[in-house]
Design a protein around this nucleic acid. Sequence first.
DNA 1: TAGTGGTCTAGACCACAAA
DNA 2: TTGTGGTCTAGACCACTAA
Lengths: 247, 247
Amino acid sequence: MQHYVDRIVRDSKLPYYYQLYVILRHKIRRGEWQPGDMIPPESELVERYGVSRVTARQALEALANEGLIERHRGKGTFVAYPTIEQALTRIISFTEDMRQRGAVPSTRVLSASLVPAPEDIAGKLGIDPGDELVRLERLRLADGEPMTVEESYLVHQFCPGLLELDYRSGSLRELLEVRYDLRWVRAKQVIRAINAPRALAAILSVKPNAALLFIERVSFNQQDIPGEYLRLYHRGDRYSLYNELRG
Amino acid sequence: MQHYVDRIVRDSKLPYYYQLYVILRHKIRRGEWQPGDMIPPESELVERYGVSRVTARQALEALANEGLIERHRGKGTFVAYPTIEQALTRIISFTEDMRQRGAVPSTRVLSASLVPAPEDIAGKLGIDPGDELVRLERLRLADGEPMTVEESYLVHQFCPGLLELDYRSGSLRELLEVRYDLRWVRAKQVIRAINAPRALAAILSVKPNAALLFIERVSFNQQDIPGEYLRLYHRGDRYSLYNELRG
DNA sequence: TAGTGGTCTAGACCACAAA
DNA sequence: TTGTGGTCTAGACCACTAA
């Protein structure tokens, strides 16, 4: 972030279109351009950043593909309003997720400890069984009502000493980025429906055997190395996923 | 399908890159090019179809974005091996879905009738309550074992007389395309976990209250008009969805 | 060295929206 | 009529792979 500059670096190894993509994405993410705002037309980007129109369009196309902007011939290019659909294509935090659904999020830490990696999780993370993992179990609430139990396993090597920090009050995601320069850039997940075991049912305030939306996710860091294994148990009666398909 | 030609139509209203995209996709879908095959290099496509390199690349990029091909600098462009991930971004048939999972699909029609549209479904389809719908209830089996109950509501106006045709033996999807020129180009869906009601449980051979992955889907035709409302009840113990997220 | 895809340019014509 | 994004071209240089 601190290396951010608002211009194309000519002798960079990164392609111009990618540099421009990052610049524009940054302005949207930090709110300099708000949803609904028109962003500068192609002609202006061409002048301002000194690239050809094709190159500018390549950057804009990438943003459009991700749903961050909408383009309208004759009218212009506009910052898109975030939709819940992003929950199924983008890695977003519980906080973001709930805000998009119009609910007030809160969190209770159920347990936090260092554990040796069980065989199955070690396999998914590509580490050796017994390697140190941070296990963090949290209850997520929406408008004060239990919504989701989150069971997270972080490779301790990537965030040594995490449990000594204040992981309870703020966003874990931010903490990992600020203190360890650790971000999840990609993730794979499997979605299933399961019946709630008794213990989980009690925590979520549902009947035993109530249907839960169960998600297992492996997240990859900037070097494309797996760093987190996550289990999400969403209440079936309160949580749903939305997405769009193409033909 | 019968209008397919293996060349760019110059005076078409469709852009060249899109025509080329459809042509190449067609060759992949029908198996003319198999997964792992190298497809002609850009230079050959440029010659063969009489378009510029930029235009050819635009078509290839669209295919790459959808995961149908993989491009490798210095090596070439190759047909990708299909992954289950497509189940969450593309509209695919149960048959395709099961084949990708390595199972043998089969179908039993449970009921088929004309019904007046209930209010809730009419709302989702943008029609008036009472309008005619084709209701088709089918049990889908994988390797002979019940997997999914599919409850489909088709706007009868788009496929008049469908029930007099042979919708039982072949693919419904193909029938709609061939006889009514009807294709679903886009769909919205909501995914939830529910407990199986007794009747559904019996059909799916699971215990009452077993967890099901429940999907509600509205599909849109070529004119972007809703034409089908679908309810999918997947067995939680046998069916899962896979997808990838970006950071 | 030859062939592949990746990036970039300058310039053109078009369709669409708004004034 | 003006300004926007959509499409298309010919040509260039580069990086990577394999022979």
